[in-house]
Amino acid sequence: MKAFVTGGSGFVGHYLIPMLRERGYQVIALARSKRAAMQVTQLGAKAFPGDLNQQAMAQGMQGCDVVFHIAGFLSIWGDYQSFYETNVIGTEGALAAAQTANVPRFVQMGAAASVFGHQPLSEIDESAPLKQPKFSPYITTKSIAEQRVIAANRPGFKTSVVRPSWIWGNGDHVLPQLLASVKTGRFVWIDQGDYPYMTTHVANACHGAILAARSPGGQAYFLSDGDVVQFRQWITTLLSVAGVEPGRVSLPHWLAWHVAGLMETIWRVTRRKDTPPITRTMVRLIGQELTFSDRKAQTELGYSPIVTREAGLIELANAIKQNGLAQAG
């Protein structure tokens, strides 16, 4: 089996490529720079130079059995066009390249956020509709990208999307950001963090994506760590791994939402280049209940988490102890 991977030098790619190799895949990874090429080569892949360009990718995909499209733009702030070019146009290019190269299967690393609107989400499943809220270019473009992938499914070209929630683990970028916000006094709870939430360890996300390569096609699948955790408990535990305690300041959700909107307006009017301390995308992603069922993935893909929350936290703590946060986070 031969797989083509986009985004292989990123956080998820650092897990996906070795997992594919362990499962017998030859891996070709798109590399936009010499540094990225060196990283994917060290992970066991053959680097293919290029970016999310249809013609270039089609050449690299020749002879492949599956494409894992991991590349994407995740941020709580930015202009819509930047999100659209990477998350939508980049996905369209990868889909077109795969079809040109006659690759029979395509798996996209989507996001649970694709179904986020304004309301909390409680015990939902894949029947929940995709949303394209005006306040969040990230959510909107991930939703559009998923639509493109599912719409491309046809006989001979099976497409699937996996939807993890808060991908975390050794090497992610969220923990350093959390630590920075706590140390600079910018960390604030929303509604005391008193709501249930679900996460997906990066190894579980990759495991689900690999399983989805054998799916019937045309389907999206939520993936989780198999449990529900109170958001406050989750953040407190995550920060404790790095020896830090979060503060106690909390805003009600309605106030956080309006403060975020005000901050966004100020940043746009003044044309500031940095990121506001709070945005509506951030409030929506982590400020409300999110619980869902991944029974569909269990039933159709045979999915179950391969890394428990406890094991993932131990791995993260060991990495920080050995290498420091710069390498672990």
Rank of each mutant, 00 (worst) to 15 (best):
Q132M: 12
P176M: 03
S122A: 11
F11D: 01
R35T: 13
I144M: 13
N153W: 02
G7L: 08
A326V: 13
F187G: 11
A45H: 07
K134V: 14
N204D: 08
L251H: 08
D79G: 03
V307I: 15
K321V: 06
T41D: 04
G13F: 08
E289R: 14
V259R: 02
R284Y: 01
C206R: 08
W189E: 06
A319F: 02
A112T: 10
G169A: 05
A36Q: 08
Q288S: 05
G208W: 04
M57T: 09
P277I: 02
G226I: 12
I286L: 15
T265K: 15
E92G: 07
M57V: 07
A112R: 11
A145N: 04
E300K: 06
R163I: 00
G208K: 04
Q327Y: 09
R21S: 05
I210R: 00
L179A: 00
Q42R: 13
Q327S: 12
A3K: 06
L121K: 11
S143A: 15
Q55E: 15
A180N: 12
I144P: 06
L178A: 02
T140R: 13
I17A: 03
I306G: 11
K46S: 05
F187A: 09
A56K: 11
V161R: 01
A151D: 15
Y15D: 03
K183P: 02
A297F: 09
G110T: 05
V149Q: 10
H118S: 14
G63T: 13
G193H: 01
V88P: 06
G193P: 06
R295W: 06
G247M: 01
R32Y: 02
S82V: 01
L52I: 11
Y303C: 12
R248M: 02
G324Q: 12
I28Y: 08
G24A: 06
K296T: 06
G324Y: 06
S114A: 15
S33P: 06
N323Q: 15
Q62Y: 07
A94H: 05
R272M: 15
L290M: 13
I190W: 03
W267K: 06
A297L: 07
L301N: 03
P137E: 04
V5F: 01
Q219M: 09
